[in-house]
Write a protein that binds this DNA or RNA. Structure first.
Lengths: 199, 199
DNA sequence: TTAAAAAATTTAACACTGTTAAGTAAATGA
DNA sequence: TCATTTACTTAACAGTGTTAAATTTTTTAA
Protein backbone atom coordinates (compact mmCIF):
# COMPACT_ATOMS: atom_id res chain seq x y z
CA UNK A 1 0.00 0.00 0.00
CA UNK A 2 1.41 3.32 -1.12
CA UNK A 3 -0.40 5.24 1.64
CA UNK A 4 1.78 3.47 4.20
CA UNK A 5 4.83 4.80 2.44
CA UNK A 6 3.39 8.27 2.34
CA UNK A 7 2.74 8.16 6.06
CA UNK A 8 6.22 6.90 6.77
CA UNK A 9 7.61 9.68 4.62
CA UNK A 10 5.59 12.23 6.56
CA UNK A 11 6.81 10.77 9.83
CA UNK A 12 10.39 11.01 8.68
CA UNK A 13 9.69 14.58 7.68
CA UNK A 14 8.38 15.64 11.09
CA UNK A 15 11.31 13.84 12.71
CA UNK A 16 13.52 16.10 10.66
CA UNK A 17 11.33 19.14 11.30
CA UNK A 18 11.80 18.66 15.02
CA UNK A 19 15.57 18.88 14.63
CA UNK A 20 15.32 21.89 12.34
CA UNK A 21 12.94 23.65 14.72
CA UNK A 22 15.25 22.92 17.66
CA UNK A 23 18.27 24.34 15.92
CA UNK A 24 16.29 27.40 14.84
CA UNK A 25 15.18 28.08 18.42
CA UNK A 26 18.72 27.64 19.74
CA UNK A 27 20.15 29.93 17.09
CA UNK A 28 17.62 32.59 18.00
CA UNK A 29 17.73 32.40 21.79
CA UNK A 30 20.56 30.14 22.89
CA UNK A 31 20.41 26.67 24.41
CA UNK A 32 18.46 27.88 27.44
CA UNK A 33 15.63 28.92 25.16
CA UNK A 34 15.12 25.37 23.88
CA UNK A 35 12.05 23.70 25.37
CA UNK A 36 9.74 20.93 24.24
CA UNK A 37 6.77 23.27 24.13
CA UNK A 38 8.61 25.78 21.94
CA UNK A 39 9.64 23.02 19.57
CA UNK A 40 6.01 21.88 19.45
CA UNK A 41 4.91 25.43 18.74
CA UNK A 42 7.39 25.68 15.91
CA UNK A 43 6.23 22.49 14.21
CA UNK A 44 2.59 23.34 14.97
CA UNK A 45 1.87 20.47 17.30
CA UNK A 46 1.60 20.05 21.05
CA UNK A 47 4.50 18.91 23.17
CA UNK A 48 3.61 15.25 23.80
CA UNK A 49 3.77 14.17 20.16
CA UNK A 50 7.49 14.97 20.11
CA UNK A 51 7.88 11.91 22.30
CA UNK A 52 6.58 9.80 19.43
CA UNK A 53 9.69 10.75 17.53
CA UNK A 54 12.32 11.17 20.25
CA UNK A 55 12.23 9.40 23.58
CA UNK A 56 13.18 12.58 25.43
CA UNK A 57 14.89 15.94 25.10
CA UNK A 58 18.31 14.37 25.44
CA UNK A 59 17.68 12.24 22.38
CA UNK A 60 17.11 15.40 20.35
CA UNK A 61 20.39 16.88 21.58
CA UNK A 62 22.14 13.62 20.77
CA UNK A 63 20.75 13.64 17.25
CA UNK A 64 21.94 17.22 16.77
CA UNK A 65 25.32 16.13 18.08
CA UNK A 66 25.47 13.34 15.53
CA UNK A 67 24.50 15.77 12.79
CA UNK A 68 27.31 18.03 13.92
CA UNK A 69 29.96 15.35 13.79
CA UNK A 70 28.88 14.31 10.30
CA UNK A 71 28.98 17.90 9.10
CA UNK A 72 32.40 18.46 10.66
CA UNK A 73 33.76 15.28 9.11
CA UNK A 74 32.47 16.41 5.73
CA UNK A 75 34.21 19.77 6.08
CA UNK A 76 37.45 18.12 7.15
CA UNK A 77 37.36 15.74 4.20
CA UNK A 78 36.73 18.62 1.81
CA UNK A 79 39.63 20.57 3.29
CA UNK A 80 41.93 17.58 2.94
CA UNK A 81 40.94 17.00 -0.67
CA UNK A 82 42.08 20.48 -1.62
CA UNK A 83 45.76 19.65 -0.99
CA UNK A 84 48.29 16.93 -1.67
CA UNK A 85 51.06 17.47 0.89
CA UNK A 86 50.16 16.08 4.33
CA UNK A 87 51.45 19.22 6.04
CA UNK A 88 49.22 21.41 3.90
CA UNK A 89 46.33 19.02 4.40
CA UNK A 90 46.71 19.12 8.16
CA UNK A 91 46.83 22.89 8.25
CA UNK A 92 43.77 23.16 6.04
CA UNK A 93 41.88 20.64 8.14
CA UNK A 94 42.48 22.45 11.40
CA UNK A 95 41.47 25.70 9.79
CA UNK A 96 38.31 23.98 8.58
CA UNK A 97 37.76 22.74 12.13
CA UNK A 98 38.11 26.30 13.36
CA UNK A 99 35.72 27.64 10.76
CA UNK A 100 33.16 24.95 11.49
CA UNK A 101 33.15 25.84 15.17
CA UNK A 102 32.02 29.38 14.45
CA UNK A 103 29.91 28.72 11.37
CA UNK A 104 27.96 26.08 13.30
CA UNK A 105 28.50 27.54 16.74
CA UNK A 106 25.45 25.93 18.32
CA UNK A 107 26.32 22.48 17.01
CA UNK A 108 29.88 22.82 18.23
CA UNK A 109 28.59 23.79 21.66
CA UNK A 110 26.46 20.70 22.05
CA UNK A 111 29.14 18.46 20.52
CA UNK A 112 31.83 19.48 22.95
CA UNK A 113 29.98 20.90 25.93
CA UNK A 114 30.90 24.56 25.61
CA UNK A 115 28.61 26.73 27.67
CA UNK A 116 27.90 30.25 26.66
CA UNK A 117 25.72 32.26 28.99
CA UNK A 118 27.10 32.45 32.51
CA UNK A 119 30.55 33.79 31.74
CA UNK A 120 29.40 36.95 30.01
CA UNK A 121 29.33 38.82 33.28
CA UNK A 122 32.47 37.14 34.58
CA UNK A 123 34.37 39.27 32.09
CA UNK A 124 33.52 42.38 34.06
CA UNK A 125 34.82 40.80 37.26
CA UNK A 126 38.29 42.13 38.09
CA UNK A 127 39.26 38.87 39.79
CA UNK A 128 38.95 37.08 36.47
CA UNK A 129 42.02 38.92 35.20
CA UNK A 130 44.29 37.99 38.07
CA UNK A 131 45.47 34.64 36.65
CA UNK A 132 46.22 36.26 33.30
CA UNK A 133 48.14 39.11 34.89
CA UNK A 134 50.28 36.75 36.93
CA UNK A 135 51.26 34.65 33.94
CA UNK A 136 51.60 37.65 31.66
CA UNK A 137 54.32 39.06 33.92
CA UNK A 138 56.35 35.86 33.83
CA UNK A 139 56.10 35.69 30.04
CA UNK A 140 57.48 39.22 29.86
CA UNK A 141 60.35 38.28 32.16
CA UNK A 142 61.08 35.27 30.01
CA UNK A 143 61.31 37.45 26.92
CA UNK A 144 63.87 39.77 28.52
CA UNK A 145 65.81 41.64 27.42
CA UNK A 146 63.86 41.84 24.17
CA UNK A 147 60.26 42.24 25.27
CA UNK A 148 57.99 42.16 22.25
CA UNK A 149 54.90 44.16 21.52
CA UNK A 150 51.70 43.71 23.52
CA UNK A 151 50.31 41.77 20.57
CA UNK A 152 53.24 39.34 20.62
CA UNK A 153 52.90 38.67 24.34
CA UNK A 154 49.19 38.21 23.87
CA UNK A 155 49.77 35.55 21.25
CA UNK A 156 52.16 33.68 23.54
CA UNK A 157 49.75 33.87 26.42
CA UNK A 158 46.79 32.66 24.42
CA UNK A 159 48.76 29.83 22.89
CA UNK A 160 49.61 28.62 26.37
CA UNK A 161 46.15 29.11 27.69
CA UNK A 162 44.48 27.48 24.71
CA UNK A 163 46.43 24.27 24.85
CA UNK A 164 45.96 23.92 28.59
CA UNK A 165 42.32 24.89 28.69
CA UNK A 166 41.62 22.77 25.64
CA UNK A 167 43.21 19.72 27.19
CA UNK A 168 41.36 20.29 30.42
CA UNK A 169 38.01 20.71 28.67
CA UNK A 170 38.52 17.64 26.53
CA UNK A 171 39.33 15.58 29.58
CA UNK A 172 36.39 16.92 31.55
CA UNK A 173 33.72 16.18 29.00
CA UNK A 174 35.32 13.17 27.40
CA UNK A 175 37.85 11.93 29.93
CA UNK A 176 39.37 9.32 27.64
CA UNK A 177 43.11 9.76 28.11
CA UNK A 178 45.49 8.18 30.54
CA UNK A 179 47.15 10.43 33.09
CA UNK A 180 50.50 9.74 31.46
CA UNK A 181 49.33 10.77 28.02
CA UNK A 182 47.87 13.96 29.43
CA UNK A 183 51.06 14.85 31.23
CA UNK A 184 53.06 14.10 28.12
CA UNK A 185 50.88 16.39 26.01
CA UNK A 186 51.10 19.06 28.67
CA UNK A 187 54.85 18.89 29.15
CA UNK A 188 55.73 18.82 25.46
CA UNK A 189 53.34 21.65 24.70
CA UNK A 190 54.58 23.84 27.55
CA UNK A 191 58.26 23.27 26.92
CA UNK A 192 57.69 23.75 23.19
CA UNK A 193 56.09 27.12 23.67
CA UNK A 194 58.70 28.17 26.22
CA UNK A 195 61.44 27.27 23.76
CA UNK A 196 59.73 29.31 21.07
CA UNK A 197 59.57 32.30 23.41
CA UNK A 198 63.24 32.07 24.24
CA UNK A 199 63.95 32.28 20.53
CA UNK B 1 25.11 48.31 70.10
CA UNK B 2 27.03 45.06 70.02
CA UNK B 3 23.94 43.05 69.06
CA UNK B 4 23.94 44.81 65.70
CA UNK B 5 27.42 43.53 65.10
CA UNK B 6 26.43 40.03 66.10
CA UNK B 7 23.51 40.10 63.66
CA UNK B 8 25.73 41.38 60.89
CA UNK B 9 28.20 38.63 61.65
CA UNK B 10 25.43 36.04 61.48
CA UNK B 11 24.25 37.47 58.17
CA UNK B 12 27.72 37.25 56.76
CA UNK B 13 27.86 33.69 57.97
CA UNK B 14 24.67 32.60 56.21
CA UNK B 15 25.87 34.39 53.09
CA UNK B 16 28.90 32.17 53.27
CA UNK B 17 26.84 29.11 54.16
CA UNK B 18 24.80 29.56 51.00
CA UNK B 19 27.96 29.38 48.91
CA UNK B 20 29.25 26.37 50.81
CA UNK B 21 25.92 24.58 50.51
CA UNK B 22 25.80 25.30 46.79
CA UNK B 23 29.25 23.92 46.18
CA UNK B 24 28.45 20.87 48.27
CA UNK B 25 25.31 20.13 46.25
CA UNK B 26 27.17 20.59 42.97
CA UNK B 27 29.99 18.33 44.08
CA UNK B 28 27.50 15.65 45.01
CA UNK B 29 25.17 15.81 42.04
CA UNK B 30 26.60 18.07 39.37
CA UNK B 31 25.48 21.53 38.29
CA UNK B 32 22.05 20.31 37.23
CA UNK B 33 21.34 19.26 40.80
CA UNK B 34 21.73 22.81 42.10
CA UNK B 35 18.42 24.47 42.92
CA UNK B 36 17.34 27.22 45.25
CA UNK B 37 15.14 24.85 47.25
CA UNK B 38 17.97 22.39 47.75
CA UNK B 39 20.26 25.15 48.90
CA UNK B 40 17.55 26.28 51.32
CA UNK B 41 17.20 22.73 52.59
CA UNK B 42 20.92 22.51 53.17
CA UNK B 43 21.09 25.71 55.22
CA UNK B 44 17.81 24.82 56.96
CA UNK B 45 15.74 27.69 55.62
CA UNK B 46 13.12 28.08 52.93
CA UNK B 47 13.98 29.21 49.42
CA UNK B 48 12.87 32.88 49.51
CA UNK B 49 15.30 33.98 52.20
CA UNK B 50 18.20 33.20 49.86
CA UNK B 51 17.05 36.25 47.93
CA UNK B 52 17.88 38.37 50.96
CA UNK B 53 21.51 37.45 50.42
CA UNK B 54 21.78 37.02 46.65
CA UNK B 55 19.57 38.76 44.15
CA UNK B 56 19.14 35.58 42.13
CA UNK B 57 20.69 32.22 41.30
CA UNK B 58 23.07 33.81 38.83
CA UNK B 59 24.53 35.96 41.59
CA UNK B 60 25.43 32.82 43.51
CA UNK B 61 27.17 31.36 40.47
CA UNK B 62 28.99 34.63 39.97
CA UNK B 63 30.20 34.63 43.56
CA UNK B 64 31.46 31.06 43.17
CA UNK B 65 33.20 32.16 40.01
CA UNK B 66 34.91 34.97 41.85
CA UNK B 67 35.95 32.57 44.60
CA UNK B 68 37.40 30.29 41.92
CA UNK B 69 39.49 33.01 40.32
CA UNK B 70 40.89 34.06 43.69
CA UNK B 71 41.80 30.48 44.56
CA UNK B 72 43.41 29.94 41.17
CA UNK B 73 45.41 33.14 41.48
CA UNK B 74 46.61 32.02 44.90
CA UNK B 75 47.74 28.67 43.51
CA UNK B 76 49.53 30.34 40.62
CA UNK B 77 51.34 32.73 42.93
CA UNK B 78 52.41 29.86 45.17
CA UNK B 79 53.72 27.93 42.18
CA UNK B 80 55.66 30.93 40.98
CA UNK B 81 57.22 31.53 44.38
CA UNK B 82 58.73 28.07 44.39
CA UNK B 83 61.14 28.93 41.55
CA UNK B 84 63.50 31.66 40.46
CA UNK B 85 64.00 31.12 36.72
CA UNK B 86 61.08 32.48 34.65
CA UNK B 87 61.02 29.35 32.50
CA UNK B 88 60.68 27.16 35.58
CA UNK B 89 58.14 29.53 37.04
CA UNK B 90 56.02 29.40 33.91
CA UNK B 91 56.10 25.64 33.77
CA UNK B 92 55.16 25.36 37.42
CA UNK B 93 52.35 27.86 37.01
CA UNK B 94 50.73 26.01 34.13
CA UNK B 95 51.02 22.77 36.00
CA UNK B 96 49.36 24.48 38.95
CA UNK B 97 46.64 25.68 36.58
CA UNK B 98 46.14 22.10 35.42
CA UNK B 99 46.00 20.78 38.94
CA UNK B 100 43.55 23.45 40.02
CA UNK B 101 41.17 22.52 37.22
CA UNK B 102 40.81 18.98 38.50
CA UNK B 103 41.16 19.64 42.22
CA UNK B 104 38.41 22.26 41.99
CA UNK B 105 36.62 20.79 39.01
CA UNK B 106 33.24 22.36 39.76
CA UNK B 107 34.73 25.81 40.19
CA UNK B 108 36.66 25.49 36.96
CA UNK B 109 33.48 24.49 35.16
CA UNK B 110 31.57 27.56 36.23
CA UNK B 111 34.58 29.82 35.68
CA UNK B 112 35.11 28.81 32.08
CA UNK B 113 31.78 27.36 30.99
CA UNK B 114 32.74 23.73 30.63
CA UNK B 115 29.68 21.51 30.53
CA UNK B 116 29.84 17.98 31.73
CA UNK B 117 26.67 15.94 31.34
CA UNK B 118 25.47 15.75 27.78
CA UNK B 119 28.59 14.44 26.14
CA UNK B 120 28.84 11.25 28.14
CA UNK B 121 26.72 9.39 25.66
CA UNK B 122 28.27 11.14 22.69
CA UNK B 123 31.35 9.06 23.35
CA UNK B 124 29.47 5.92 22.36
CA UNK B 125 28.41 7.51 19.10
CA UNK B 126 30.55 6.22 16.22
CA UNK B 127 30.18 9.49 14.32
CA UNK B 128 32.06 11.28 17.07
CA UNK B 129 35.24 9.48 16.06
CA UNK B 130 35.14 10.43 12.42
CA UNK B 131 36.91 13.78 12.76
CA UNK B 132 39.64 12.19 14.86
CA UNK B 133 40.12 9.34 12.39
CA UNK B 134 40.44 11.71 9.46
CA UNK B 135 43.07 13.84 11.14
CA UNK B 136 44.85 10.84 12.65
CA UNK B 137 45.49 9.45 9.17
CA UNK B 138 47.08 12.67 7.97
CA UNK B 139 49.32 12.84 11.03
CA UNK B 140 50.52 9.32 10.26
CA UNK B 141 51.25 10.30 6.67
CA UNK B 142 53.15 13.33 7.87
CA UNK B 143 55.34 11.13 10.07
CA UNK B 144 56.28 8.83 7.22
CA UNK B 145 58.50 6.99 6.79
CA UNK B 146 59.09 6.77 10.56
CA UNK B 147 55.63 6.34 12.01
CA UNK B 148 55.82 6.38 15.78
CA UNK B 149 53.90 4.37 18.31
CA UNK B 150 50.19 4.79 18.81
CA UNK B 151 50.98 6.73 21.97
CA UNK B 152 53.18 9.17 20.08
CA UNK B 153 50.53 9.82 17.45
CA UNK B 154 47.98 10.25 20.19
CA UNK B 155 50.08 12.92 21.83
CA UNK B 156 50.44 14.81 18.57
CA UNK B 157 46.74 14.61 17.90
CA UNK B 158 45.74 15.80 21.32
CA UNK B 159 48.21 18.64 21.25
CA UNK B 160 46.62 19.83 18.04
CA UNK B 161 43.13 19.31 19.25
CA UNK B 162 43.74 20.94 22.61
CA UNK B 163 45.12 24.16 21.27
CA UNK B 164 42.36 24.49 18.70
CA UNK B 165 39.52 23.49 20.97
CA UNK B 166 40.91 25.62 23.75
CA UNK B 167 41.13 28.70 21.56
CA UNK B 168 37.63 28.09 20.28
CA UNK B 169 36.19 27.64 23.77
CA UNK B 170 37.93 30.72 25.08
CA UNK B 171 36.57 32.77 22.23
CA UNK B 172 33.07 31.42 22.60
CA UNK B 173 32.65 32.15 26.28
CA UNK B 174 34.90 35.16 26.46
CA UNK B 175 35.23 36.36 22.90
CA UNK B 176 37.78 39.03 23.69
CA UNK B 177 40.34 38.64 20.94
CA UNK B 178 40.60 40.24 17.56
CA UNK B 179 40.25 37.98 14.53
CA UNK B 180 43.86 38.73 13.62
CA UNK B 181 45.21 37.69 17.01
CA UNK B 182 43.20 34.48 16.86
CA UNK B 183 44.49 33.62 13.44
CA UNK B 184 48.01 34.40 14.55
CA UNK B 185 47.72 32.09 17.54
CA UNK B 186 46.20 29.41 15.36
CA UNK B 187 48.79 29.63 12.61
CA UNK B 188 51.81 29.71 14.87
CA UNK B 189 50.49 26.84 16.96
CA UNK B 190 49.64 24.67 13.98
CA UNK B 191 52.87 25.27 12.11
CA UNK B 192 54.82 24.79 15.33
CA UNK B 193 53.30 21.39 15.98
CA UNK B 194 53.68 20.37 12.34
CA UNK B 195 57.36 21.30 12.50
CA UNK B 196 57.79 19.25 15.63
CA UNK B 197 56.18 16.25 13.93
CA UNK B 198 58.47 16.52 10.94
CA UNK B 199 61.41 16.21 13.31
C1' DT C 1 5.15 44.13 81.64
C1' DT C 2 2.66 45.23 77.73
C1' DA C 3 1.61 47.35 73.17
C1' DA C 4 3.41 48.80 68.86
C1' DA C 5 6.82 48.59 65.32
C1' DA C 6 10.21 46.19 62.86
C1' DA C 7 12.55 42.29 61.28
C1' DA C 8 12.82 37.55 60.04
C1' DT C 9 10.82 33.72 58.04
C1' DT C 10 7.29 30.95 55.77
C1' DT C 11 3.33 29.90 52.87
C1' DA C 12 1.17 30.53 48.54
C1' DA C 13 1.30 31.61 44.13
C1' DC C 14 2.93 32.40 39.12
C1' DA C 15 4.94 31.05 35.04
C1' DC C 16 7.87 28.06 33.40
C1' DT C 17 10.37 23.23 32.66
C1' DG C 18 10.33 17.81 31.09
C1' DT C 19 7.34 14.07 31.02
C1' DT C 20 3.31 10.79 31.41
C1' DA C 21 -1.63 9.20 31.43
C1' DA C 22 -6.06 9.81 30.14
C1' DG C 23 -9.29 11.47 27.02
C1' DT C 24 -10.89 12.93 22.35
C1' DA C 25 -11.06 13.41 17.55
C1' DA C 26 -9.91 11.56 13.01
C1' DA C 27 -8.73 8.11 9.79
C1' DT C 28 -8.90 3.32 8.56
C1' DG C 29 -10.67 -1.51 7.78
C1' DA C 30 -14.54 -4.78 7.52
C1' DT D 1 -22.13 1.88 8.79
C1' DC D 2 -19.70 0.29 12.82
C1' DA D 3 -15.55 -1.04 15.23
C1' DT D 4 -10.78 -0.42 15.68
C1' DT D 5 -6.79 1.63 15.29
C1' DT D 6 -4.05 5.87 14.78
C1' DA D 7 -3.22 10.74 15.68
C1' DC D 8 -3.43 14.23 18.62
C1' DT D 9 -4.75 17.14 22.64
C1' DT D 10 -5.88 18.22 27.32
C1' DA D 11 -4.79 17.60 32.04
C1' DA D 12 -1.85 16.53 35.34
C1' DC D 13 2.62 15.76 38.21
C1' DA D 14 6.81 17.06 40.06
C1' DG D 15 10.18 20.03 39.52
C1' DT D 16 12.43 24.85 38.45
C1' DG D 17 13.37 30.35 39.62
C1' DT D 18 11.09 34.08 41.61
C1' DT D 19 7.76 37.37 43.90
C1' DA D 20 3.99 38.98 47.08
C1' DA D 21 1.38 38.25 50.94
C1' DA D 22 0.79 36.35 55.39
C1' DT D 23 2.75 35.00 59.60
C1' DT D 24 5.78 34.41 63.15
C1' DT D 25 9.55 36.15 65.90
C1' DT D 26 12.31 39.74 67.73
C1' DT D 27 13.16 44.36 69.04
C1' DT D 28 11.76 48.87 70.65
C1' DA D 29 9.08 52.23 73.44
C1' DA D 30 5.82 53.43 77.05
Amino acid sequence: MASKDRILRLKEETRCNILDASLKIVKEGGWDALSMRKIADEIEYTAPIIYEYYSNKGAILLELTRKGFLLLAKDLQAAKDKHRLPAKQLEAMWLAYWNFAFAEKELYQVMYGVETSCCEMAKKMPESEMPMDLIWDVIVELMLPHVGTEEEICIKYYTFWSVIHGLISINMVNRGNTAETNHEVLKTAISGIIRSIKG
